[in-house]
Design a protein around this nucleic acid. Sequence first.
DNA 1: AATCATGCCAACCGCTATACC
DNA 2: AGGTATAGCGGTTGGCATGAT
Length: 266
Amino acid sequence: MGRPPCCDKIGIKKGPWTPEEDIILVSYIQEHGPGNWRSVPTNTGLLRCSKSCRLRWTNYLRPGIKRGNFTPHEEGMIIHLQALLGNKWASIASYLPQRTDNDIKNYWNTHLKKKLNKSESEERIISENIPLQPSAARNTINHRSTYASSTENISRLLEGWMRASPKSSTANFLEQKSQNRTNDLMDHHNDQSPYEQGSWDQGFHVHPKNSEENVKCDHDHVQEDGDGDGDATPPLTFIEKWLLEETNTGGQMEVMSPLMELSNML
DNA sequence: AATCATGCCAACCGCTATACC
DNA sequence: AGGTATAGCGGTTGGCATGAT
């Protein structure tokens, strides 16, 4: 029968959000909390559909989001997790709580995929007699592009704006609300992932909740990339090998012990 | 200086899963 | 139990910025 559109197309504004719209949305969410998106356009007067409001919040306005400037550490995690999970951006994002799935997806599509392609072609060359130069391979990973970081987390900007505003009571209210929401969100996220707040660095253990389905799903996925017919060849890509090599050099020790653990599970 | 090509990212679209009545 | 609405996810696109010619 087909799902009807999330909202009437007539009178619905599309395209980039304005700061004014952001402020309205943030203020509303700080007061009422995220959720019940259907009521957001009605209650705020925003000429946006509920879906657009939700996306704007989750991908841009939500507190605690880090934008741009992916670290080599994060790149390594994304690369490896993508190899393991496939294009499960939401799942990957759950391991990088400060990043949104959209951000990770964009970064993958615009940067990492190219690097991987380049690396794989290098691997092909390498496999044809050229000895591996780890430093050269590493450069393809660590020389991150100048991913524009100009778009700071607008909620922080808004907080700053509110703080600077003469309406101090409102600013304080919103600020406090924001903090509460941040804490709520973090608490909520802790329910979903143990890798919150730097816990990745403290060790990697497959999340009990996700491990089974993820590993199962991942296994299926990896098999697509690998031979998938029970051959003993491990489905390690060049990047994974590189990451594993890093373990021996101590460069990515904290990351790689869990990564090896995951790899072994496959 | 103007034009074209490319890269990047925010936002949208369409689908599936889940919740609710 | 079945239908409908909503939330969530991944793929795709539009438009701006920047670089190359």
